[in-house]
Design a protein around this nucleic acid. Structure first.
Lengths: 120, 120
DNA sequence: ACAACGTACAACCAACTAGTTGTAGGTTAG
DNA sequence: CTAACCTACAACTAGTTGGTTGTACGTTGT
């Protein structure tokens, strides 16, 4: 398959790494907006905003539906959740380290304060 | 100071938008690793890996401590949580839909400039 | 019909990125 | 002391990105 998890993650994080795109995503998660409506919110050309929308669309973070001459964009909350899930897996790796350290700390009594709490 | 939330988010997502950096982050979240040890895991020069580590460090996703001639890197799980939190806020926007458009419109530069919009 | 609107994309440009090699400084081992 | 090791950074190259303008095409309103 062409689109591996890593490819998808690349696209997700790249799309989110631009503040204009994050702002666009906020708006289209809050509700449908046409590309022109979005473009009027930013101090840049329509073409620039259109490209930002295209990046978000290619990353699967928003979808467009056509209504007449307008392209109405809305955010895909499932994709956002997927990104969050990936971060959760990173966190799990960290928890795994702590778990092993807990085993180590069961025997001695060195009370290191760097690993005191595990919010779960 | 001007390290705004958006600046920090730019750095976070940019750092995460590279698969080598994500992999490095996985390793250092699971446990401390020297830069050389990390570099040996990838098919690229030491300098390249060192730069990836520097990007992650600048983004606050990992910290380094010096031990002798080695620089031991470990992942900062709090930063990872912060990224997840930001995604959670996006999700909240979706849940609210329509509701809080005012806060949304307060965030960016908001140029409600018109483009000859007349209805007559 | 026709002008204005909404969208998409191509071509171009400056700035940045991810990789390279090379160099230099601090640290450990013999 | 000397050599090997670990790290950091500078300089360079090729590819990518975020912006621009211009063009083309379908849709809407008069």
């Amino acid at each position: 398959m062409s689109t591996s998890d890593e490819d998808r993650a690349d696209a997700w994080f790249h799309a989110l790494a631009d503040r204009t795109r994050r702002d666009i995503l906020r708006r289209v998660l809050a509700g449908e907006h046409s590309v022109t409506a979005l473009a009027q919110s930013y101090d840049m050309s329509f073409a620039a905003v259109q490209k930002h929308v295209a990046v978000l669309e290619r990353a699967g973070l928003l979808t467009k539906r056509r209504q007449g001459r307008e392209a109405l964009a809305s955010g895909d909350v499932e994709a956002v959740r997927s990104v969050g899930l990936m971060l959760g897996e990173l966190e799990a790796l960290w928890r795994g380290r702590i778990a092993r350290m807990d085993e180590l700390l069961a025997t001695p009594d060195t009370t290191p304060d760097t690993t005191t709490h595990r919010t779960d």
